[in-house]
């Protein structure tokens, strides 16, 4: 009991365990699971990542001016929803060209505001995808 008293007393003069958050940024480890990055030039449009994604955060949707890529025969464009993503990196494991076409960074997504239309925009893409299937 006396040791716990002594400990409580010395704790008064210790630095706090928490960091001063908005002023001191949180240091993320190099291997922290964060946002998925995409390299359009290297993509071969095999759609394996789309099938592997558990929550369906990656969609390839046909658009009018598709990115110029020889492999892109159906005129698809890659869409990624960082707010739906669970950062499990199943897509990166499914990708035949990991690190070039698809990779995982250690960044967190930006805080979304209403103007980003995070939900509505994504629902429209999902509808478009359903129509083309």
């Amino acid at each position: 009991m006396f040791t716990s008293f002594a400990k409580a007393f010395t704790n008064l003069f210790k630095k706090p365990q928490t960091i001063d958050y908005p002023l001191t940024p949180i240091v993320k480890d190099r291997d922290y699971r964060g946002l998925i990055g995409y390299g359009e030039e290297a993509c071969i449009y095999c759609l394996k990542c789309e099938k592997a994604c558990p929550p369906g955060a990656i969609l390839f949707v046909p658009v009018e001016n598709p990115p110029e890529n020889k492999q892109n025969k159906k005129g698809l464009k890659y869409h990624y929803n960082p707010y739906l993503c669970i950062y499990c990196s199943e897509c990166v494991r499914a990708c035949p060209k990991p690190d070039e076409a698809l990779w995982q960074s250690n960044k967190k997504p930006e805080v979304a505001v209403m103007d980003d239309r995070v939900n509505e925009g994504w629902f429209e893409l999902e509808k478009l995808k359903k129509q083309n299937d």
Binding site: D29, D31, Y32, R33, Y87, S89
Partner: peptide, 15 residues
Amino acid sequence: QELLTGNRVQFDYIN
């Protein structure tokens, strides 16, 4: 745990 799996709570470590 974060170092090992890449996240504090949702480990998503086992497949």
